[in-house]
Every structure is written in structure tokens, then in C-alpha cells.
Amino acid sequence: MLELRLVQGSLLKKVLEATKDLVTDANFDCSATGFSLQAMDSSHVALVALLLRSEGFEHYRCDRNISMGMNLNNMSKMLKCAGNDDIITIKGDDGSDTVTFMFESPNQDKISDFEMKLMDIDSEHLGIPEAEYHAIVKMPSSEFQRICKDLSSIGDTVVISVTKEGVKFSTRGDIGTANIVCRQNKTVDKPEEATIIEMNEPVSLTFALRYLNSFTKATPLSESVTVSLSSELPVVVEYKIADMGYIRFYLAPKIED
């Protein structure tokens, strides 16, 4: 028996919008810790890891660990039927091949339930090692989104370099080159508007912009984004989900032949 009641149902809607274009099918794992997902894109270049902690739900009942295979496009279709202010409850029964999403309007005058077929997914769970990152950049998520979008109109890949000067995003394409440097800036009105650069040592890595642009679909989930870089490791692009957990995207770098 599984019953998870999320008052801020819009969070789940946003999570689906952020993941459905990257991953087609995924297993959602439910345990005492929370509701989580780990999945790679079809080419195994990117990985998404989601955690919504049990404490973030108004009601969280999960009698035993359960893994539910879902087609994210179909799940998104169903969640789009929920209002932005709706409370969403996810219900499942042991051994059942369906999951139910229940939507309640804030004043309880409309209650809907959508039953979705589950699927068997053979997914490999990867062990993500704890890593010391050479540099961690925290910046407004809208700024990161803007940079990725702007650079992808010039080139296909971006070189992200962190030095004492700041973080530099560079690209080149047929029409020319582009460099955007963001310096640390803590003198802002709100903490989420700050750009904070923690650097242990300089680092420079190359990534496909197509994937980074896909990650920025998570921008509505958080005002700020954290980009963690280490040489020859996948970059981690993390959006914190207020009071609940996170969505992390890992992207394998492009490596010189």
C-alpha cells in the first residue's frame, strides 16, 4: 500500500516537465526515505536523479519499498490535468499494475482520479560516488538558462572554465565564437540572485549544449542552480526543490580523442 499526499502538487508537475524530454521510461522508487528516481537518457550521456523526501509530503505511507515503472510522457499527460494549486495524491497497491493520481482542488470542490498503467522497466541503478569537486558555482537558475540558450544559437558545445576570475562559458560555431564570463557577486538584494564561486582548483570541461538546455527545463523548480565541476567527471547540475529534496542532472563531458 502506497499513499503519498503532496499539497504543493505543482512541484510534481514541474518535475515531469523537467525530465520527460530526457528520459522516456523510468522506475519511481518509493521507500521510507522518500519518492525517488534515477534514470539515464537513451544514449547514456546524461543521468537524472530526483529525491522528494518523505517529510515533504503531508501524508506519506509506504508499507514496503516499491518500484513503479512509468512512461514519463504518459505521466506528464495525466499530471497536466491537475491544476497548479491542486493537491496531488499518488496511490498504489502491492502487486497492482496501475498507479492512481488523485487531484483535489484547493477548496475541495473538484476531485479527480486518473489511473495509469505501470510498465516493467529493466533499469540499471548506478552507484554515484561522493566526489570532491574542483569548483562549485551557484548562480540564478534563470541566468544559467539564458546562457545555455544563447550559446546554443552559436555552437553545439560549451567549454565551462572556472578560474579565479570567475566562470567562463565559451562556444564556437560556423558564424563565430562567444564567451560569457560571470564573476562572483554576493552584493545582491536576495540570496538567490547571488553568484557564488567556490574553487579548489581551476577546471575546464566541454559539454554538449543540447543536454544542458534540456536540464534547464527544471528552472521553474528553483531560483538558483548549482553547477559542480571536476576534471574528467560528469558535471552535476542541481536544482533544489524547496523543503523536499532535489533534482540533479549529471552530464558526461566531451573528452579529447
Binding site: M40, L126, P129, P234, K254, I255, D257
Partner: peptide, 14 residues
């Protein structure tokens, strides 16, 4: 030129 690496090159199967 540069080559796209994969996640599985870095993270082992659980």
C-alpha cells in the same frame, strides 16, 4: 576532435 563520453564510464552499476 573531442568525443562524447558516457555516464557509465564514470559511475559503476549498483
Amino acid at each position: 576532435g573531442s568525443k562524447q563520453s558516457t555516464i557509465t564510464k564514470f559511475f559503476g552499476k549498483f
